[in-house]
C-alpha cells in the first residue's frame, strides 16, 4: 500500500514539473495531494488525511484553477531569453540535494533506531486528541493563526480590488 501511494504522489509531482498545460499540471498536483492523503491514512492519521483532501485539493487547488482560468494563461509563455547555464546548475543542485538527502536518511543510525522502536502502529489520531492538544497547549498560536487568516483575507481583497 505504501509504495502505491508514494508512487501516486511522486508521479503526480513529476507530472506537474513536466506538463506544458498549466491546468493539466494543476490536476497532476491534485493527484499528488490525494497520494499524500493516502500516506497520512497509512500513518494512522485519518484526521490529517481528511484535512488534506478538504483544504488542499478542495480549497487551495480550486482557487488556483479558478485563477488560471480567469487569467486565461493555460500555456506557458515563450521564453524571453534562454538561461541554459542557470537551468543546468539548478538541475544539478536539486539532484545533489535529493541524492544527498536520501543517502543521509538511509545511513542515519538514529532514524533506524526510531523506526524500530516505533514500529508498532499507534492508536489512530482522533479529532478529540487534536482538539485537547490544540486548545490546552497552543491556544495563543490558534488565535494568532485566526488573526493571520483575517489579515490574509483583507490583504487579498485589497490587492485585487481595482480602486479601493
Amino acid at each position: 500500500m505504501f509504495i502505491t501511494f508514494a508512487l501516486i504522489t511522486l508521479l503526480g509531482a513529476v507530472g506537474m514539473l513536466l506538463q506544458k498545460n498549466v491546468i493539466v499540471a494543476g490536476l497532476c498536483l491534485v493527484a499528488a495531494f490525494f497520494g499524500v492523503a493516502g500516506l497520512f491514512v497509512l500513518l494512522a492519521n485519518p484526521v490529517a488525511a481528511a484535512l488534506q483532501v478538504i483544504v488542499y485539493t478542495g480549497a487551495i487547488m480550486v482557487l488556483v484553477l479558478f485563477v488560471i482560468m480567469m487569467l486565461n494563461s493555460h500555456e506557458e509563455e515563450k521564453a524571453q531569453a534562454a538561461h541554459p547555464i542557470q537551468r543546468w546548475v539548478s538541475v544539478a543542485l536539486i539532484a545533489a540535494l535529493a541524492i544527498g538527502a536520501v543517502k543521509l536518511v538511509l545511513a542515519s543510525p538514529g532514524l533506524k533506531a526510531l523506526a524500530i522502536s516505533g514500529a508498532a502502529v499507534p492508536q489512530a489520531m482522533t479529532l478529540q486528541k487534536v482538539g485537547f492538544t490544540l486548545f490546552a497547549d497552543h491556544l495563543l498560536g490558534f488565535e494568532v493563526a485566526g488573526l493571520l487568516l483575517l489579515a490574509a483575507m483583507v490583504g487579498a481583497v485589497a490587492l485585487t480590488k481595482r480602486n479601493l
Binding site: V55, Y56, A59, I60, L63, L149, G155, A156, L159, T160
Partner: peptide, 10 residues
C-alpha cells in the same frame, strides 16, 4: 498555506 494561497494569487 491557505494565507499564502490567497495573498499569492492576489
Amino acid at each position: 498555506a491557505a494565507c499564502e494561497a490567497a495573498v499569492g494569487l492576489a
